[in-house]
Design a protein around this nucleic acid. Structure first.
Lengths: 175, 175
DNA sequence: CGCTGATATTTAGCGTGCGAAACATCTAAC
DNA sequence: GTTAGATGTTTCGCACGCTAAATATCAGCG
């Protein structure tokens, strides 16, 4: 039997007062909106990146290294929310294109430091729009109150999800 | 020069009154929250699907076909927000596993109708949680007012993005 | 020193996900 | 009816993105 993260169980321990069943369409609409916003911003990032011969993730990496400087592969993976193995591939291709360089750390020879090459730096300066900025542009149209409400509610939501996930894992998840 | 989708331009035509520069951290937090919610719900979907030997997208397809019945490949692609070529691959693997079947339409022989097999139907009944429901669980903790505000603001946001995208494309996009 | 377990990275295999091109079929226009 | 363009699907090539396993190195311990 699996009991990794039992979502149906979780429901029973939650306040029933809130978001009643008749709001189902609204809930679906919220989900729809979030998915739309995420996928669209991703598509836009990709489009911006493509104008400079980059992929979406590659642009993210370039901007990250420009901002934070040298990063180990692990740190870089955390920053862009991807697995090490995924980033290995991305860095492989970027290295092939001469955008970044790998350097073995001297203090700990397991660690690989990733740095921007001259070409990488130039690209970082060329591309004005950071991935996150595409979202930001859309947010510009909101009133300050709306923005505050949005942040408050989304944060609450994210924390709830985080809690659900933690509960699930605490229940005996062996990775 | 590129002008495929000029995001900086768009800003000029927008109300300056809203979301001022000093709210930058809040804006970043909103983005962070949306990205988190999206990726986490996707991860959870994948986890639920895995318990039944499915991938995330495959579970989505199973639930979609269970709900809507027979769908052409194009319609199915729209529904799950993916390109035809992507769905062709997903359906290939599901067909191989005996979950769905392809049937050439008699009225229009270009069209391929996708249907659930008996095994597909059984799986659909077995798996209680629809992908969207994972989000829903998190939303259960919100007050009704919060849910309404969230929907209102997100919708506004999504419409703004949609408008930005349309503007960009109308401005003369040559792939 | 030699062993053990932890940590950092890579490799291998698979499943999306996309755009472009190939292919089949349909539709309209002549 | 033939031709030209539109539409539905697949194929191809590439880039993620993930997990599991392999590899290399480190840190500590007897």
């Amino acid at each position: 039997m699996f009991r990794t993260l039992n979502i149906s169980d979780a429901k029973d321990s939650m306040p029933k007062s809130a978001v009643p069943p008749e709001m189902k369409p609204e809930v679906d609409a919220i989900v729809e909106a979030i998915v739309y916003l995420y996928t669209e911003s991703r598509r836009l990032t990709k489009e911006v990146a493509a104008r400079h011969g980059l992929t979406g993730p590659q642009l993210t990496v370039v901007k990250m290294l420009e901002t934070l400087g040298e990063l180990s592969l692990s740190r870089l993976s955390e920053k862009i929310r991807a697995q090490n193995s995924t980033v290995t591939g991305i860095v492989d291709r970027m290295e092939r294109e001469g955008l970044v360089a790998r350097a073995r750390s001297t203090s700990d020879r397991r660690v690989v430091q990733i740095t921007l090459t001259a070409r990488g730096h130039q690209l970082a300066r060329e591309v004005k729009v950071e991935p996150i900025q595409i979202f930001r542009e859309a947010l510009v149209g909101l009133s300050r109150d709306d923005a505050k409400d949005l942040l408050r509610i989304l944060t609450k939501l994210a924390n709830r999800v985080r809690q659900m996930v933690d509960d699930g894992q605490a229940r005996g998840d062996q990775t």
